[in-house]
Amino acid sequence: MKPTLTIAALALSVTPVFAADYPDRSIFMVVPYAAGGPTDTIARLTADAMSKSLGQQIVVENVAGAGGTIGARRVADADPDGYTILVHHIGMATAPALYRQLPYKPLEAFEPIGLVSDAPMTVISRSDLGPETFEDLLAFIKEKGTNVTYAHAGLGAASHLCGTLFMSTIGTRMTTVPYKGNGPIMTDLIGKQIDMTCDQATNTVGPITQNQVKAYAITSEERAETLPDVRTTTEAGLPTFKLGVWHGVYAPKGTPKEVVEKLSSALQAAMDDATLKQRFAQIATIPATKEQATPDALHTKLDSEIKRWDPIIKAAGEFAD
């Protein structure tokens, strides 16, 4: 039998039985990053909360590597039975521009389940950098140009995307200094070895409130509860400089509709979970609303983000492969 026929036959024979009883065993949630990182934390909290309404355990499996594309590919190739799902962040939308040989198409290879969270970014610098306000900082960068060092956590990382967007918005280039991960950047920033970066509020709230680094602006529509004194980029006069690190849950393409609906409603219930809400708030992360935790909302978000980042990344001329 040809492979397509086999798959079709399998799908026909198996699907109806599945959908009704789903889930009757534990579900694997693939996290395309290492255990202990921010995506892993968000996934574990979400998995816990979703398990409650699904009545089955959701096991987190870390399939790290190549900027999250290995884990995403694993799920794209998995059986579309709802027992293998994926949590991925904004990298899902930027991968097509960063990876010229991406082995899957984000919009076509997955069934979106729903959005999970959104975390704003903060523009921060070493505590003794000259400028005091965001406006001063812009003038400072325009004057010094490549003499200002901007740290990011590797191509495709949130801090890299933020820097790329920032530089393309203000039309000035700085010297970019790549790191492996956010931890070392924060150490070097507190130790005054580099000038500035832009990182998820999740990682920066602590150092900012302890005055170990200087915060200039936050890239969300509204100020963050945990950082009431940090102005938004709109307030600071640069409204087009907006981005957040959002997470979504996906299933492989071809997952039965009933299964997608079950997962999606479990996700919506999870977003209402008291523990999850509290933990998300502590790491300056906003849980998705009931309307956002739906397949349609995630599809729209993914589509618009892919279209948004494609020209920005291509203009910067950087590729991760």
């Binding site: 990182g37 924060m186 150092p207």
Partner: peptide
């Protein structure tokens, strides 16, 4: 500093956040 020095420390930080403690100087 709340900064992980190695993968083990990163795991500890992840565990702390899941427990509701935000690591850092505070």
């Amino acid at each position: 500093l709340g900064v992980p020095a190695n993968p083990v420390m990163a795991l500890m930080i992840g565990a702390m956040i899941i427990q509701g403690i935000v690591p850092g100087p505070q």
